[in-house]
Design a protein around this nucleic acid. Structure first.
Lengths: 208, 208
DNA sequence: CTAGTATTGTGAAGGTTTTCACAAGCTAAA
DNA sequence: TTTAGCTTGTGAAAACCTTCACAATACTAG
């Protein structure tokens, strides 16, 4: 695909999808851009513009078919295939992720949990057994893992990322508060709580 | 303050601060916009423009004093005062947050942990004792809590948010995958893992 | 004191994203 | 069939954000 899609547009698409799934559960068959906007904290024009980046999904005068638009968004976001994920780091964050049903529901399959701490290796953890992080490259290759979630300490994360990308992982979700250096062809998304809290305190301080 | 500062600029400031703290630990006394940019994955011009939104912190020909700029950024981000935080939800996410040392290090004090599940109430948890979420309004008032972290299920989160903001909380960090309706004067930041993963799968799908 | 090198702060230019506004298209009702 | 009422898709305008480019300034060496 040629056009460049902004990060914020993609995040909105993800949000629209969630909203559509709620509407579907609530029994709505169709929805207008205005309704979708109101439930997604944006504007009708923004919704239509975002969708128009990928095609034409509605009917003039009628709006969008909830199911149809949801299917189109899943397709756009790459959610029609299941994704195989390896979770690295069996600490609290890893635990929260493993337990979270929302991941499986969206097609993210955690195929292995890896850990450095030898006292944890071999233990059962949810449906998985914790394995040695040394097996990372083998697991990625054997199970054709596409995404790695890194929930490891700052000191270890660059090294683990290097191994993962060498083994063929294409996407990284990084929880360590550090900017990773990544090779060509690997995409990283950072989740950084302190940054979120600081943008909150900035807003609060401004208000005073 | 009159000028409107973009969300992305604020996030970069937060990142610069972290970079400066690393530089400080590494013994650097001064830094140029170029060096700061290289370590923060942006450009020298962007760094200077971001800083210029708030004043003039460097010396021409010399760059910035690491300590001084860090202090200025802490001031801008509202980190010179400690923030009193209540954590609502003693599940996995709450547990990960409570344990995370980075929060305390940046001046975020978790003054109480609240929970709905009566089987958890009263238990010790880290340094805290889990209290009943029914006590939310009282805790907020008694301890002058400014920020609430919501790590509760989707079904409960709007209600909890309403109570928190009625009691006087001004900032919310929300982990539930739902868009909260908030009253005037309350700021919300959302942390949404599925959205991050989906923007990752979008990028990966595009690449194919 | 002067020349040379480094680096900031900032208007202006360039680029991107959001909002506006309206023609085109669809349905229902008369 | 015609009219009235909605709603989409999209160029154009407006707003916003990033990059460029350079005058101003600081230090060092000779």
């Amino acid at each position: 695909m040629s056009k460049k899609i902004s990060e914020s547009a993609v995040r909105r698409l993800s949000l629209y999808l969630r909203t559509l799934e709620e509407l579907d559960r609530a029994g709505h068959a169709t929805v207008s851009s205005g309704q979708l906007a109101a439930r997604s904290a944006t504007t009708a024009a923004q919704v239509r513009k975002d969708l128009s980046l990928f095609g034409s999904f509605g009917k003039r005068g009628l709006g969008y078919t909830v199911e149809e638009l949801a299917r189109a968004l899943r397709d756009i976001l790459g959610l029609t295939q299941p994704w195989r994920v390896v979770l690295i780091g069996a600490g609290r964050i890893g635990s929260a992720l493993l337990e979270y049903r929302g991941l499986a529901h969206r097609g993210f399959q955690i195929v292995a949990v890896l850990e450095n701490d030898s006292s944890k290796i071999g233990r059962e953890w949810g449906d998985s057994i914790i394995r040695d992080v040394a097996e990372l490259e083998q697991v990625v290759r054997d199970r054709d893992v596409q995404i790695a979630i890194l929930a490891v300490p700052v000191a270890a994360v660059q090294d683990v990322m290097d191994q993962a990308s060498r083994a063929g992982v294409r996407g990284i979700l990084n929880f360590a508060p550090v900017r990773l250096k990544v090779p060509e062809g690997v995409t990283v998304k950072d989740v950084n709580l302190v940054m979120e809290l600081e943008s909150l305190t900035f807003a609060l301080s401004q208000g005073l």
